[in-house]
């Protein structure tokens, strides 16, 4: 599903060049449930942005489901790939606060030019799956953090992407809610969708099936967990 070959990325800050990724080689199969770990500054967010086609890489090669994602990609193509291949979940939820939960979930479908009725029907299905059918007409600020993140997860799944990228999805949640959210990701993964979670919390990463530890811009460890735990510990 994801193939990275010697991905390098640096940022120019003033006169100094900051090398964030120093050659990442990574292979993730379809249906995997992976966590990317690392301390702040290890480049894990940058890697996630490159994977999400939100940022460009300098050198190397990136294939997403066989499609070569390179710099020559126009903004429009990038947008279409994002829409079709990738679902995003963020630490700060990033819901549109003037839209209801249902409208938020339906947003990716809007950009697929699916008509309104169909959009709402599909969005309602996914909202139901995250257990928020009764909250469909609520605005994000009327929901708890955990509920907002569940709306965001429903939104990430609604366009039936090939992978879901989650950037610190539990960072703003208490531990009980965090485990609920991770349980939800597990269910998503069970349906065959590849899930990538960036986190710095060990107990969160232990709920995935594979841990990739980033260390100063390169992959330090790659641990396969045979018995990924699925419940609250």
């Amino acid at each position: 599903m994801i193939e990275l070959k010697n991905i390098q990325k640096s940022y120019q800050t003033g006169y100094t060049k900051l090398e964030v990724l120093k050659g990442i080689d990574l292979h993730i199969e379809k249906g995997e449930f992976v966590s990317i770990m690392g301390s702040s500054g290890s480049g894990k967010s940058t890697l996630l942005n490159i994977l999400g086609i939100l940022d460009e890489y300098d050198t190397g090669e990136y294939r997403l489901d066989g499609t070569f994602i390179n710099k020559q990609l126009t903004q429009k193509q990038a947008a279409i790939y994002r829409n079709q291949f990738i679902g995003f979940v963020f630490q700060s939820f990033n819901l549109l606060n003037f839209k209801t939960a249902l409208e938020n979930v339906a947003l990716p479908l809007y950009y697929q030019k699916i008509d309104r009725k169909q959009r709402q029907k599909v969005a309602m299905e996914y909202l139901d799956r995250v257990g928020l059918r009764d909250w469909a007409d609520h605005l994000p600020n009327q929901l708890s953090g955990g509920q907002q993140q569940r709306v965001a997860i429903a939104r990430s799944m609604v366009a039936r992407p090939k992978i879901i990228l989650a950037d610190e999805p539990t960072g703003a949640l208490d531990s009980k809610t965090s485990f609920e959210v991770m349980k939800l990701f597990k269910e998503v993964n069970d349906e065959g969708i590849t899930v990538l979670v960036v986190t710095h919390e060990n107990d969160i990463s232990k709920m995935t099936k594979r841990i990739i530890r980033l260390n100063d811009g390169i992959i330090g460890e790659n641990i396969l967990l045979e018995n990924a735990s699925t419940g609250a510990s």
Binding site: G52, A79, F88, L107, Y111
Partner: peptide, 16 residues
């Protein structure tokens, strides 16, 4: 800015 960022992540094309 934030709204546009979210829309872009959700697959909004530059034209839209």
């Amino acid at each position: 800015t934030k709204e546009i960022g979210i829309r872009k992540a959700m697959g909004a094309t530059p034209l839209s």
